[in-house]
Design a protein around this nucleic acid. Structure first.
Length: 258
DNA sequence: ATGACACCCGGAGGGTGA
């Protein structure tokens, strides 16, 4: 791990094929971003737009047909350490992990949990359990690391606009919030809250009912940092302006600098 | 109480999202 600034970002893109131009434009405007973590690419590995690799960027994907899927786009080469989350025995493509500059980055798309009844919700909790176990393994190995992505949880009532979700929604259920806290209690730091302990900062606005215009948003895109990374944290930026673009994703990018 | 919006696949309209 070097002492030069390192910036990594997360963006649930809601189909990379529908929004590749947004990502290309964004990367041009953010030359400081060393690694971009994408979620919901919604395509198989072979369908990921070739333009990024052709532009000299380094790309790794864990995709599947139609749904889910995560990807990494780096300015420099990196080493993929896992294409799936160890201990999460479910076929959906929701995790990819890489190491660069001595830092391990786990890019995740946590199950929403509102579909599939109680089994669907149990899958969400199972992902949390596997992620906490992964945290313990990386902590034991004394690896500086971050988990970043769409966690599909509003950790507290301050992390959603009043009335944006029903109280029994899987994103705010007490069991969901407890699972997020258990993950934090392995020793991880919520990067945004480390810098801004209070206040409403959203990363998602629904397409429906003019949610963005009413600022009826959610904070569900998070970065959790290991102790050695947390002490280096200097900035957390929510790129809210991206939500104003034509055919925008319903999530905006978040950037972490250490 | 319902639907609004957007993506996917497939070639109509249902599944999923949050």
């Amino acid at each position: 791990m070097s002492n030069t600034p390192f910036t990594f970002a997360s963006w649930n893109i809601n189909s990379i094929r529908a929004r590749a131009h947004h990502v290309q434009d964004w990367l041009e405007r953010h030359p400081d971003c060393d690694l971009l973590c994408l979620q919901e690419i919604k395509c198989e590995d072979s369908q990921f737009p070739a333009a990024f690799a052709e532009a000299g960027l380094h790309v790794a994907t864990s995709g599947q047909k139609a749904y889910n899927g995560v990807a990494l786009i780096g300015r420099r080469p990196f080493t993929v350490t896992h294409h799936a989350l160890p201990g999460f025995d479910h076929p959906s493509a929701r995790y990819i992990e890489a190491e660069l500059d001595g830092i391990t980055i786990g890019n995740l798309y946590l199950p929403n949990g509102n579909s599939g009844g109680e089994d669907g919700y149990a899958t969400k909790l199972a992902f949390f359990d596997a992620l906490a176990e992964r945290a313990r393994v990386l902590l034991d190995a004394e690896k500086p690391f971050a988990f970043i992505g769409d966690f599909n949880v509003c950790p507290t009532d301050e992390d959603l606009a009043p009335g944006a979700l029903s109280p029994d929604d899987a994103l705010v259920r007490p069991e969901t919030r407890a699972a997020f806290r258990r993950l934090e209690w392995t020793g991880l730091t919520d990067a945004l809250r480390a810098l801004r302990p209070a206040g409403r900062h959203y990363t998602f606005w629904d397409y429906q009912a003019a949610a963005f215009q009413r600022n009826s948003g959610l904070r569900i895109d998070h970065a959790l940092l290991s102790p050695r990374l947390a002490e280096r944290l200097t900035a957390f930026v929510i790129d809210r302006d991206e939500r104003t673009k034509e055919k925008a994703s319903d999530h905006v990018p978040v950037l972490v600098t250490v």
